[in-house]
């Protein structure tokens, strides 16, 4: 494999992806910022002041890491699923398939685009959060690694959704009926300690719980689950998802006849 060609090709895909979400910033960057700002106002300021403390912190402080993570998850996923499916739908995936760009480069390029959009929206949401509460970071390495790994995992998930999708309905069904419930039940708004034992145990099957809590640990120093388990789960999803995406790409699943 000619690494120089692959590197240029990777950069080309990333630049194309960034230009895409920047060109349509009104659709990609503004709506999540407004939505999350409303969560800050309603759950943080209005209702949060009546909830009191959670996990030893004001509810607003508790909920901010979860909401940042929610923005990162939704936007990493959304970027890759819509961009890659759009590429398939318009047929311009063939531009890549006929070129010397290797499958791994295609995958890494799209994932980088998803991660960058996730981080861009996450950054905007973090700045907005500073208008509502003070944020001090307990551990930068944990915070950064958690947000990066989460963005990668959900970029991969978006890619897999796009690979299998046959219509635009297919790329909205998973976010609506799977992703959103998992996020809402993944400890973004509450500590699993509040749940009855049975539901707390059920919650442990939700991978988003580990991501949100790992990130919250990086910022606040508190978590419902062990940090080691969070890293383990993220690594598992990352490697498993990447391997599966590579398998599908190499087979040309729904790309080649």
């Amino acid at each position: 494999m000619n690494m120089a060609i692959q590197w240029v090709s990777f950069k080309t895909i990333v630049v194309k992806e960034v230009r895409r979400f920047m060109r349509i910033w009104v659709q990609t960057l503004v709506p999540p910022a407004i939505t999350i700002a409303l969560y800050f106002v309603i759950f943080g300021s209005l209702i949060g002041s009546r909830i009191g403390q959670m996990g030893g912190y004001d509810y607003m402080q508790f909920v901010v890491p979860g909401l940042i993570m929610m923005a990162v998850i939704q936007n990493s996923y959304g970027n890759v699923v819509s961009s890659f499916y759009g590429t398939k739908f318009q047929g311009n995936i063939e531009e890549l398939l006929v070129s010397p760009t290797a499958e791994v480069t295609i995958l890494l390029g799209y994932l980088a685009g998803g991660v960058l959009r996730g981080l861009a929206v996450g950054g905007i949401v973090t700045v907005l959060a500073l208008f509502f509460t003070d944020l001090s970071v307990e551990s930068w390495p944990i915070t950064i690694s958690m947000v990066l790994m989460t963005a990668v995992v959900f970029s991969i998930a978006g890619f897999l959704n796009a690979m299998y999708a046959n219509s635009f309905d297919d790329i909205s069904i998973i976010p609506t009926f799977v992703l959103t419930p998992m996020i809402y039940l993944g400890g973004v708004f509450y500590s699993v300690d509040l749940l009855p034992d049975f539901w707390a145990k059920v919650s442990l099957a939700n991978p988003i719980l580990y991501m949100v809590n790992g990130f919250r640990y990086g910022i606040l120093g508190v978590s419902d689950v062990s940090l080691g388990v969070s890293y383990f789960m993220l690594t598992l999803f990352m490697l498993g998802g990447f391997g599966f995406a590579m398998y599908l790409l190499t087979r040309g699943e729904k790309l080649r006849s």
């Binding site: 000619n2 120089a4 060609i5 240029v8 080309t12 230009r19 531009e95 070129s99 010397p100």
Partner: peptide
Amino acid sequence: FDILVTQGGYYGLS
């Protein structure tokens, strides 16, 4: 123009 520049990138052109 961008379509052509992107295509060039896929083939390793600076």
